[in-house]
Design a protein around this nucleic acid. Structure first.
Lengths: 142, 142
DNA sequence: CTTGAACCTACAGTAGCTAGAGGATGTAGA
DNA sequence: TCTACATCCTCTAGCTACTGTAGGTTCAAG
């Protein structure tokens, strides 16, 4: 039986985050001691590991909920899980493309900075100059 | 004199966002009509374009505040603006590296999915398998 | 039996917006 | 001039995915 702190350490999660996952129904309500403290078993450890791993891969909590559901029903078709992963891959690739464009523009800004006064600063100039703006109004690849 | 809606269209910003920027002091309080509606001039258009462009490049609102301050003082040294841009570039490069790793792992997951039942699903298996976990507990490249 | 680390709940705050309610204003056409 | 209606106003709450704090309780070691 693991305390919440031990579970946190084993999975690289903060204690608060585990309680948060419980609150939003991503983790089940665990057993408690007489004094009211949470105690976890291996099933919960596995589940939380799954969640954290998926988070590291950038899956949203909603996507993870779906994946957990699929994982809980071994007879279901794999196609859904695959679709979720593909969606995630696409998103990652879109972000990559976006970030690569940003890197190019930032590099240009930085390398052309003369080091003089801000009135001649290439960084500020680029930001001011509307015509060099990225044409679309897409969100950044946060 | 531009209404807030026109300013929004010209800069690809939502009306609410402009009011939000005013609220947090990123945009100045504009003049008003007798009836209390905001009216903007070219200075505000330029400032908002600057902000949006910087946002598209991934600068935080705090960084943008600094950049605007530098931009407002043409005599200051360019070094600070350069430093901010370099910091941003570094962050973008860190995110890129992270996302590339994610892409690799996601691709592997997706391509190895057999299309059968979830019990054999490679996607779920990878997520379940702790040993294949990314070793660090870093945040995702959100 | 005491100490102190770890636990508990509840609530507030983070970034950067976005959405909605409920009402006022401004402008174009009849 | 009147009317319709798009746009504006303020205010509040919500979003994601946590994180932090306050004030109090429990557990396990010594």
């Amino acid at each position: 039986m693991l305390t919440i702190g031990t579970l946190a350490k084993k999975t690289g999660t903060k204690v608060q985050t585990i309680r948060y996952y419980e609150q939003i129904g991503l983790m089940p309500e665990p057993g408690r001691t007489e004094g009211g403290q949470r105690r976890y078993g291996d099933a919960e450890l596995d589940r939380l590991s799954f969640v954290r791993h998926a988070r590291q891969l950038g899956f949203s909590l909603d996507a993870i909920r779906e994946l957990l559901d699929l994982s809980d029903h071994p007879g279901k078709s794999c196609a859904e899980a695959d679709a979720i992963a593909r969606r995630q891959l696409k998103q990652v690739e879109r972000r990559l493309a976006r970030l690569e464009a940003l890197r190019t523009e930032l590099k240009r800004m930085v390398h052309e900075c003369s080091g003089g006064q801000t009135s001649d600063c290439r960084v500020l100039e680029v930001l001011r100059d509307h015509s060099e703006c990225l044409t679309d109004h897409e969100e950044i690849g946060a």
